[in-house]
Design a binder for these strands. Structure first.
Lengths: 157, 157
DNA sequence: ATCATTTTGTTTCCTAGTCAACAAAAATGA
DNA sequence: TCATTTTTGTTGACTAGGAAACAAAATGAT
């Protein structure tokens, strides 16, 4: 196997394992709230004036999917929507108190997971970190460019 | 943001973008076959005596899901099943000619994607590669151990 | 200003995958 | 040996998410 694929498979493997491993605790602590819902809460908490479109782009999901998730979050009163006077089309979200609380629980859980994996990250040198992060950034930017290329290639048809 | 999360988010971001970017060509070349089906074909092609359980473990999916996928692959005559005389329970799979052909197309497509991303990987030094791969391996092993821990912790109940 | 195009969000229909329950075979243990 | 437990694969009910079609608002072009 060549290194390119080894890297990608390695990434995928790690993420799969993390999801698998975190799932039980996630479900226990965030009873009733799906992980996609919690992810949306996290994003809305961090980004002012979040809307369906921005959420969708960030998660590489369809607006359709996000629209359904935010609908649920609204019904559960974890977020509330608002609009701006100058735009009657876009609908923004912000967290409610209750949404903030869920976010906090989620944060704490992540702290716990970080603690669990600490011994791995302790063994990583600064240079190794920088090496990994610079690769990630470079690859990510390249993919952005390729995605943009593809979009203009598809649109005109 | 701390580096741990930056790394994980970076990995996730890259994989999301790759999936998003590859999807159109995948669907075009492998018309009618879903990506999960093709992944199973790939695994079956590479691993002798694949069965539902091994596929499920490798992909971190349920046996249920894999069972449905292999059922479809059988119906499409892309794989065939066989058993061993000493075991009447386990059902193994191998590729048919047609399955091999699909696999080939998939392989070529990956070559194309690798070509597309070549300029990124060309800029990566050997040391950087080794740095990344050793981190991936270390983290992966740690997660394996944690998963095993969790399994024994859950089982007795 | 007006008409065409694009953007945004929603809904309906459909499919992929999970969960839970199950049956059959295999492994374990007394 | 025979009974219990575990493993393996399958199914049915359910849910999350994608595709397509849509309406309403915004943007752009002339």
């Amino acid at each position: 196997m060549n290194k390119e694929e080894q890297v990608i498979l390695g990434f995928r493997d790690i993420l799969n394992k993390i999801v698998w491993l975190n799932k039980p605790k996630m479900e226990e602590s965030l009873k009733g709230h799906k992980s996609s819902e919690v992810h949306c809460l996290e994003f809305i908490g961090k980004n002012a004036d979040s809307n369906v479109t921005k959420l969708a782009e960030s998660f590489f999901m369809t607006r359709s999917a996000i629209s359904k998730i935010t609908k649920k979050l609204l019904e559960k009163d974890l977020i509330e929507s608002y609009q701006k006077p100058e735009n009657k089309k876009e609908i923004y979200f912000r967290l409610t108190e209750e949404g903030l609380a869920i976010n906090k629980i989620h944060d704490d859980l992540h702290k716990e997971f970080r603690e669990r994996d600490k011994k791995v990250f302790e063994q990583v040198t600064e240079e190794q970190f920088d090496s990994i992060l610079s690769f990630v950034e470079m690859y990510s930017k390249h993919l952005d460019a390729e995605i943009k290329k593809q979009e203009v290639a598809i649109k005109p048809e």
